[in-house]
């Protein structure tokens, strides 16, 4: 059963990722991104991270992709671009070599530590995971306990991001009446 879930979710993730980088229409790329994000959410569930899976669907698929689609429609760039134009001819082979090198290094590291990671996915501490809300309980204890300062800093970060975006996207008055 876990194998079946893994294969289906991996097909969703990889198919969506290939779609993001190959579709020439930005709207299709954004919809492929949704497929990838749902696949990642399925994998979060199979790793006993139910809260993160819900947040993944709500924040990424619900908010970020919708924001992408808003901007695509607002700017009117939802037309097909020619992905076969190569201004720098060496760029694609070079990019392929670099990204394949990164993947190869990581896979080599994973394979060399497979006796640590080779156990079947067992989940977190099962004694504390008996309750249905155990994942949220553990996560909340960690976030509001040891990491409460970082949590407060993220609220400041979100406020700064909102104010900065409003400031950037605002139309500047030409007659200087806004001063």
């Amino acid at each position: 059963m876990e194998l079946f879930v893994f294969v289906v979710a991996a097909a969703m993730v990889l198919g969506g990722a290939i779609g993001v980088i190959t579709r020439s229409n930005p709207v299709h790329a954004a919809l492929s991104l949704v497929l990838t994000l749902f696949g990642i959410a399925v994998m979060f569930v199979s790793h006993d991270a139910q809260f993160l899976a819900a947040v993944q669907v709500i924040v990424y698929a619900g908010a970020i992709v919708v924001l992408f689609l808003f901007v695509i429609m607002l700017l009117g760039v939802d037309r097909t671009e020619d992905v076969n134009i190569e201004p720098i001819t060496v760029q694609r082979p070079l990019a392929l070599i670099v990204s394949a090198g990164v993947v190869g290094i990581v896979i080599a590291a994973v394979v060399s530590s497979r006796e640590l990671l080779g156990r079947p996915v067992g989940g977190l501490d099962k004694t504390t995971l008996s309750a249905p809300d155990a994942n949220i309980r553990q996560l909340a204890r960690e976030i509001f306990g040891n990491n409460v300062f970082a949590f407060e800093l993220t609220s400041v970060l979100l406020l700064v991001a909102v104010v900065g975006t409003v400031l950037m996207a605002r139309r500047v008055k030409s007659n200087g009446a806004g001063k």
Partner: peptide, 16 residues
């Protein structure tokens, strides 16, 4: 599926 499978999939996704 072991943890290695997920890590390799994540590496491939990062490369893409």
């Amino acid at each position: 599926p072991t943890s290695s499978w997920y890590l390799i999939l994540a590496a491939v996704l990062f490369g893409i």
